[in-house]
Computed example of a mutant assay.
Amino acid sequence: MNLDSENNEDPAKCTLVKGDYLYFHYGCDGQDDRGWGCGYRTIETMASWLCQNWSPPKYQNRPPPSLPEIQQALVAMGDKPGSFSGSREWIGTFEASLVLDYFYDVPCKLVHIRGGEAELERVAVEELHQHFEKHGSPVMMGGDRDNSSKGILGVCTGDKGSYLLVVDPHYYGCQLEKTELQRRGLVTWKRLSSLDQTSFYNLCMPQTAKIGK
């Protein structure tokens, strides 16, 4: 696991997503959503994990909702006005929690991080370690100044700091092989310190530990 060219030591603690998922990105279904659809695509990536790893049989073959279906669901729940359907409005972690509960009956924990590397290390890293150990599902991360949606698939902590395994939905183009996604940095380890330290961040964490019990 190559975290960084400067980090040749094994991480002291590393927790990762459990199970399979699909990578959703701009335009992957033929809809050009560049500039506004990153939150929707991260939700679809999270939903793909639920489709393949969620225990109740009625959800196992439920494909990730399309962008129009996500918008229609938010309108049906009363979170958005009717004019939201067919729009290019952004959505974030709160909407993600509503959508995943609507389609898959999975509650989500929302965690707010005020910003700054110390707060990210103290709150986000520990929350992510606990989440992947207990639930194993992908996490959505978004902020205010840094408003680009990110899928978080793992966290590693060592002597040289913490890293997040990020799946980036901001790719538009033909389907790529896994190694090419990694080469382009679309699925990659990123230093926690590389995040915008002036931005607050929110995490949306699907609570999947008690499924099937």
Rank of each mutant, 00 (worst) to 15 (best):
75 V>A: 06
102 Y>A: 00
79 D>S: 14
122 R>M: 01
149 S>R: 12
142 G>M: 15
109 K>Y: 08
123 V>L: 14
150 K>V: 03
62 R>F: 04
120 L>D: 02
159 D>F: 02
160 K>C: 13
161 G>F: 12
103 F>S: 03
141 M>E: 05
88 R>N: 11
108 C>G: 04
124 A>T: 07
115 G>V: 08
76 A>V: 08
109 K>R: 15
69 E>C: 02
110 L>W: 06
150 K>M: 09
93 T>E: 02
150 K>E: 10
82 G>N: 12
62 R>W: 00
106 V>E: 02
99 V>Q: 11
66 S>E: 05
121 E>M: 10
154 G>D: 01
66 S>Q: 13
151 G>P: 09
130 Q>K: 14
86 G>W: 05
81 P>G: 05
93 T>L: 06
108 C>V: 12
93 T>S: 14
114 R>Y: 01
85 S>K: 07
144 D>Q: 12
62 R>T: 09
101 D>M: 07
153 L>G: 13
127 E>M: 04
107 P>G: 04
73 A>N: 09
131 H>Q: 03
137 S>I: 05
154 G>A: 07
136 G>K: 13
139 V>E: 07
103 F>G: 01
147 N>V: 03
130 Q>E: 15
139 V>P: 05
122 R>N: 12
66 S>W: 07
86 G>V: 05
124 A>M: 09
96 A>S: 11
129 H>Y: 07
115 G>H: 10
132 F>M: 06
135 H>V: 01
100 L>C: 05
141 M>C: 15
